[in-house]
């Protein structure tokens, strides 16, 4: 019994850390710079495609993973430039990128819908060798995910409090003010989107190595999952300040994956999982509303966007 719960938690912890990268990226775009970037649904499989192709070509898996993250950040640059330079509304920029990346991902993988990595050496093999745990154990997965999550956390926590990072966050709060205080808001949005998409592609590259293949359809549902994590993290932890926001996003991803894993283990048919997601997100969004209603506070009509 305890072993099962332990296993459940360990698995959700691993998944939460990896999907936490996506949640943090989406927190950055949706919440901090206020740029609802839907393109992550394309940059996630893009990261997977790039890493798979490079590893099959014989690249060192660590370098291939970094290259995939970098490639993903270029997707973010493209999405945000459609908005800032060509003045296309943000939601449409994301949609344009999703459809375009489907074809690009097929091309990257040499016109195949998937690439197997089962006979290749991945970062998981390398880390397993390095610490002397046998490959395939959950400890290896957790270690890889933890290292990435911790590095990401410390780098972003530092960056968002630098002069550029502050301007980036202020852009999401009051664009007019930021321009009036001499910071290029367009550049800030491009930087923010490139970091976010880099993180999402990094997650794609890691998941692809963990599951042993890259698939052109692996991005489907990522957007909803990332949003669910962001919203759950917000609702449960109500973060204020950079550090707590980053932690809340990751914790939101953990809670979300825990719900899904428990539901599966309890024998729920996989087809019902999307309904669970829908219910979770609805509850998380409605809690603040009910809280205010109980205190007889006036609640303004909901935003038509996010």
């Amino acid at each position: 019994m305890f072993e099962m719960i332990g296993g459940l938690l360990a698995f959700s912890f691993y998944e939460g850390l990896v999907f936490g990268l996506i949640a943090v990226g989406m927190y950055l775009t949706f919440r901090m710079i206020n740029f609802p970037d839907l393109g992550v649904e394309g940059s996630f499989p893009f990261g997977g495609a790039v890493v798979a192709v490079l590893i099959v070509k014989g690249w060192n898996p660590f370098i291939a993973t970094i290259a995939a993250a970098f490639a993903g950040s270029l997707v973010g640059v493209a999405t945000s430039m459609l908005n800032t330079k060509l003045r296309i509304p943000a939601l449409l920029c994301g949609i344009i990128m999703i459809v375009s990346l489907w074809s690009i991902n097929l091309r990257v993988m040499g016109n195949r819908a998937n690439i197997s990595l089962l006979r290749e050496e991945t970062i998981f093999h390398k880390i397993a060798d390095l610490v002397g745990i046998s490959y395939g154990r959950i400890e290896v997965d957790i270690l890889v995910a933890l290292v990435l999550a911790v590095i990401t956390f410390f780098v972003l926590n530092w960056f968002l409090c630098t002069q550029i990072g502050l301007a980036l966050r202020a852009t999401g709060d009051n664009e007019q003010m930021v321009r009036g205080l001499g910071s290029d808001t367009e550049m800030n949005i491009v930087i923010g989107c490139s970091i976010a998409n880099g993180l999402v592609a990094l997650a794609g590259a890691v998941i692809c190595q963990a599951q042993g293949f890259s698939d052109v359809g692996m991005g489907i549902g990522i957007l909803v999952m990332g949003l669910a994590s962001v919203i759950l993290g917000d609702a449960i932890f109500r973060p204020k300040g950079v550090t707590s926001m980053l932690l809340a996003a990751t914790a939101g991803a953990f809670v979300y994956r825990l719900f899904i894993t428990v539901a599966l283990r309890m024998g729920m048919p996989p087809g019902d999982l999307k309904l669970i997601t829908g219910l979770l997100v609805t509850i998380a969004l409605v809690i603040p509303f009910i809280r205010k209603k109980i205190r007889h506070e006036w609640v303004p009509p909901a935003s038509r966007l996010f």
Partner: peptide, 18 residues
């Protein structure tokens, strides 16, 4: 944070703590 933004008007923003 608002004042830190304002303080850097007309200066180049970099990777120093805000």
């Amino acid at each position: 944070e608002n004042l830190a933004m304002a303080y850097l008007r007309g200066k180049k923003r970099g990777l120093k703590a805000a």
